[in-house]
Design a protein around this nucleic acid. Structure first.
Lengths: 230, 230
DNA sequence: TCAACGGTTTTTGTATACAAGATGGAAGAA
DNA sequence: TTCTTCCATCTTGTATACAAAAACCGTTGA
């Protein structure tokens, strides 16, 4: 858990990396809601550094799509509309499906062991009924599939997108019974991969992710008055 | 061709953007071969600016994966091994396949027209026998499919990856008869999309891209003495 | 009352200055 | 001769200074 490969692009410096991570969490956690202007001077004061490392962190955040830098206007937390979010889930589903297909064909015995271990951790978390424990174990489970794909570039892409969707997926897990259903879907995924059935693994993973997008959509819709068409 | 949506993440400033583009082209064009150290001071002298905008451009390049910034060590043009390149083509194939599948289902009549127009431009370029004209028209053709997918996030991802693979694809087109074969593959893709046959469009696009990865592999292998295993 | 104008102020973008870690080479010991 | 150590130098990372563009705000005129 220490020398892990960061899911993000190489970071310029140590402090810029730390800054970026804190800002990422704050944006995801709603400290800076969408549309918020991120003032360089204020951030510099907050972190007790000069504007230089702040700017560098902001550029990285912009590259990862979390904020938007409008020249001479400043940095703004990007509005991710429900439309775009669904699009992102759609792409995520495809990436994970691809990982699953390749993993079913290519995983070594070692990797199978790790996958099963992660799956069992999910089982324990499910029983404990703690959504955030499940969230953590779930992350390990999917990571096992990413790295098991044997395509490191694909794995990187999947990690980046997963991290961008993290706040929304987390929110999503609190939906009634979602943890239990998710775990059952994992069962099917593990079975397909262990069987080496690539088509089944692909389809199971695609469905597993797509359903999250749909559930999220339902969730958002339930918050609105009714019939909010775009 | 002027107010196009940049395939990259929002840029901090105008000059940083210009710097990034020049550096991108230089890296792709071999001015800075893989492994080259990009010295901030030298770059600053070359572009007659201070180190500040140079650093910001380098951070963006690192985010897009073209270079790697090792803290306190400097920026290095990233080595893209043949292994990684094949991985990238594999992912690209999947993204394009997805675009094709969605495009077959969702394209409007207008978008059909644009696709056919791009296809005809490819035909003219094929007849002219000018690989770089074909390269240009080919870009338009694929762009029509990206935007026709109706998933703007997917389209962005596809554009980013396409631009990263651009130098290698370009190189690849000079292989004997590749232009003609590529155009024939386009025929099949267009037919499938116009028919609304999503499965066929998906498969045709996947094959179209994968074959490029394979041809590239062949090409690289032919440059080496023989049997150069990793 | 409202809109247009102009000046002030704030904030970004760039340059420069400074601090600290990394590199490389010379000198000395085994 | 070769390896190690230390020091000079270079380069990155951060802070500060300055320039210019945008936002703000009060004033003026209709």
């Amino acid at each position: 858990m220490s020398t892990e490969t960061a899911p993000h692009a190489p970071t310029a410096t140590r402090t810029a990396k730390a800054l970026r991570e804190v800002l990422e969490e704050d944006i995801a956690g709603g400290v800076y809601p969408p549309g918020t202007r991120l003032d360089e001077a204020s951030l510099a004061r907050r972190f007790a550094v000069s504007r230089t490392p702040i700017r560098e962190a902001l550029i990285e955040l912009a590259a990862s799509g979390l904020i938007e830098i409008r020249p001479r206007r400043g940095a703004f937390v990007r509005e991710i509309g429900i439309r775009r979010l669904i699009e992102m889930f759609e792409v995520m589903a495809e990436l994970e499906a691809m990982c699953g297909r390749l993993a079913a064909r290519r995983m070594t015995a070692d990797e199978h062991t790790r996958l099963v271990a992660a799956h069992e951790a999910c089982a324990r978390a499910t029983e404990s009924g703690d959504p955030s424990a499940y969230f953590e174990a779930n992350g390990q489970f999917h990571e096992a599939i990413y790295s098991g794909s044997g395509n490191e570039f694909l794995a990187e892409q999947a990690r980046v997108l997963q991290s961008r969707l993290k706040p929304y997926r987390r929110l999503q897990l609190h939906v009634r019974n979602r943890v239990g259903t998710s775990f059952q879907e994992h069962e099917a995924i593990v079975a397909a991969i262990l069987d080496g059935d690539d088509a089944r693994a692909e389809e199971a993973l695609r469905a597993h992710i797509l359903i999250q997008g749909e559930r999220f959509n339902d969730f958002v819709a339930s918050l609105r008055p009714r019939g909010g068409a775009g």
